[in-house]
Computed example of a mutant assay.
Amino acid sequence: MKKRVLFVCLGNICRSPSAEAVFNSLLEEQGLENEVECDSAGTAAYHEGEPADGRMQSHAIRRGYRLTSISRPLDPIHDFDTFDYVIGMDDNNVWDLKKKARNLDDLRKIYKMTDFAKSKSYQSVPDPYYGGADGFELVLDILEDACQGLLNRIVRETQVESSAGQ
């Protein structure tokens, strides 16, 4: 059964589209793009319909990632019904997601991106929007670590589900 992941930040122009691009790159490397799919959204509609922040795109391109998503706000009904994982980038995103959750099933799908990081140096993915170049690089560093951890978890879960179904 295909797993679905939704990455969420505030405006859906820096962190969550970057997480989507990093995760898609890992899926392609592992040949899992038909097993897992992802998308991104924002808790606010400030940038709805816009491409990712140009600074974030520049830093991502240098690492081989293309940020192709267009900003959209979270749709609680559709997104909680569609996605298995709804992952906020920081505590505020997670809090906003929990406020939008309709029930316990929705709440069980909510995680923070750094929950999956092997390196526990950071408790969240900081918003680079008002900072300099170092902030965008830090976001990508954290996302590369956490996305690999997330993929490892999904692969383990899928193997357990496959064994249980046999």
Results as ranks from 00 to 15, higher is better:
106 D>G: 03
152 N>W: 01
26 L>F: 08
76 P>S: 08
101 A>L: 04
24 N>F: 01
100 K>T: 03
143 L>K: 06
27 L>P: 02
7 F>D: 02
21 A>N: 01
96 D>Q: 15
118 K>Y: 10
164 A>N: 15
163 S>Q: 12
112 K>S: 02
101 A>V: 02
34 N>E: 14
130 Y>H: 13
106 D>Y: 04
17 P>I: 00
79 D>T: 05
64 G>P: 07
105 D>H: 08
54 G>A: 13
74 L>F: 12
132 G>D: 14
150 L>D: 02
50 E>Q: 13
44 A>G: 06
111 Y>G: 02
162 S>P: 00
35 E>H: 09
67 L>R: 03
63 R>G: 11
11 G>N: 09
28 E>I: 14
48 E>C: 06
40 S>L: 01
41 A>F: 03
95 W>V: 04
14 C>H: 10
96 D>M: 13
71 S>F: 05
136 F>K: 05
35 E>I: 01
142 I>K: 01
135 G>M: 09
95 W>D: 14
56 M>I: 01
139 V>W: 10
21 A>S: 07
27 L>V: 04
85 Y>F: 15
54 G>E: 12
32 L>M: 15
58 S>P: 00
157 E>W: 03
35 E>Q: 09
100 K>N: 11
120 K>D: 04
19 A>Y: 05
118 K>M: 09
163 S>F: 13
140 L>C: 07
98 K>W: 01
73 P>T: 12
161 E>H: 13
18 S>H: 01
69 S>Q: 06
59 H>P: 00
57 Q>L: 05
78 H>Q: 14
50 E>K: 09
113 M>F: 04
158 T>P: 03
156 R>Q: 13
11 G>P: 09
70 I>Y: 06
123 Q>R: 13
76 P>V: 06
83 F>Y: 15
148 Q>K: 14
17 P>S: 01
24 N>T: 06
31 G>Q: 10
41 A>N: 04
128 P>G: 11
41 A>Q: 05
120 K>G: 03
50 E>S: 10
60 A>G: 00
49 G>T: 03
154 I>Y: 05
104 L>V: 11
136 F>Y: 15
55 R>L: 08
109 K>T: 00
88 G>H: 08
68 T>S: 15
41 A>K: 05
122 Y>V: 00
120 K>M: 06
117 A>Y: 03
105 D>L: 07
43 T>P: 00
117 A>D: 02
159 Q>L: 10
105 D>E: 12
97 L>Q: 09
12 N>A: 06
113 M>L: 03
89 M>I: 09
138 L>A: 03
147 C>Y: 09
39 D>I: 07
87 I>Q: 07
159 Q>R: 14
105 D>S: 11
5 V>C: 11
85 Y>P: 03
23 F>N: 01
155 V>M: 10
121 S>F: 05
37 E>G: 04
108 R>K: 12
8 V>L: 06
61 I>F: 08
163 S>R: 12
27 L>S: 04
163 S>C: 08
42 G>Q: 04
137 E>S: 13
164 A>M: 14
116 F>P: 00
6 L>I: 11
60 A>E: 00
84 D>F: 09
127 D>K: 05
112 K>M: 10
84 D>W: 07
4 R>C: 10
135 G>K: 10
55 R>W: 08
40 S>F: 01
35 E>T: 01
64 G>I: 00
58 S>N: 12
70 I>S: 05
100 K>W: 06
63 R>N: 11
143 L>Y: 06
88 G>Y: 09
164 A>I: 12
25 S>T: 11
90 D>F: 07
